[in-house]
């Protein structure tokens, strides 16, 4: 998939649902000059209502589950959900906690999983780009 497939700038909203900050700082690292995802038009936005992609990090803790659902509902369609990190994908090392309701896909539908503890910024960018491909397919069908 070449750069030509970027038909639109992609706006991303980041939700931490109980992560350890490892993935979160790698997401920010992806935005800063070494990786600089803004050159692809990928931008972090301050509200889910403007977002095309949700980046979710961490296992979903009990108080965050309801809020994560709400953020998902606030994000306009078409949207894609990218889970960043091992905990969000499978609950990871937090699998037997009383305050974790499960991995992200136990709460909202997920399109792309980026494994790693934490994944490198390159992997996160790749995950978001994979989500673009999904959004474009949805757009073509319309």
């Amino acid at each position: 998939m070449g750069l030509s497939s970027f038909k639109r700038a992609l706006w991303v909203f980041h939700v931490a649902t109980g992560s350890c900050n490892g993935c979160d700082i790698e997401i920010v690292a992806a935005l800063t000059p070494r990786y600089d995802v803004e050159r692809f038009g990928i931008r972090l936005v301050g509200t889910p209502r403007h977002a095309d992609v949700l980046l979710v990090t961490g296992p979903v803790t009990r108080p965050m589950a309801e809020r994560l659902k709400r953020v998902y509902e606030q994000t306009p369609d078409p949207k894609a959900v990218v889970v960043v990190g091992g905990c969000g994908s499978t609950s990871g090392v937090f699998y037997d906690s009383y305050n974790v309701v499960g991995p992200v896909d136990a709460v909202i539908p997920v399109d792309v999983y980026v494994p790693g503890c934490p994944p490198r910024p390159e992997a996160i960018v790749h995950g978001v780009v994979t989500a673009v491909a999904k959004l474009e397919k949805v757009a073509e069908k319309r």
Binding site: A16, S19, N21, M64
Partner: peptide, 10 residues
């Protein structure tokens, strides 16, 4: 709070 778009935990 508790959701923050940029960096930190909730």
């Amino acid at each position: 709070g508790p959701i923050h778009p940029a960096l930190k935990e909730p």
